[in-house]
Amino acid sequence: MSAAPKSPGPMNPSPVNPCPTNTRLHTLGPVDQIPLGEGRAFGVDGEQVAVFRLRDGTLRALSAVCPHRGGPIADGTIDRQVVICPLHQHAFDLETGCSRTGAEPLRAYSVREDAEQNIVLHNEMNDVEN
């Protein structure tokens, strides 16, 4: 199920040839694979990303492994602002990944829905190795 890097979105020439900002776009498939108010995990560029679909329909994406003890963030409970890790209830801002409860932050990704109702994730590559 987890989507490998797929066909590029319309804005992006090619996924293997990163655009100047070093951002790769990934289409992770249709949004309706995520029920409203829940999250699902995806493997992207060898990273685990939790994508959430808020009850207002918008999307958020954070790294999927809790910095506390490795809890599955995609299984967390969310509202419009935060996700709460299911293991020990640390809370993380869905927008920034910063913890509201004193844990290390999660990485935040920008994510949106395209015209075909697919999830599009931007992965900014900050390492130069690729």
Partner: peptide, 20 residues
Amino acid sequence: DERDARFINDRVHANIQRDG
């Protein structure tokens, strides 16, 4: 019953463990 209102245990009817 909106499933997102449930804790993960109640969504999948099992008890989550430390390793997920």
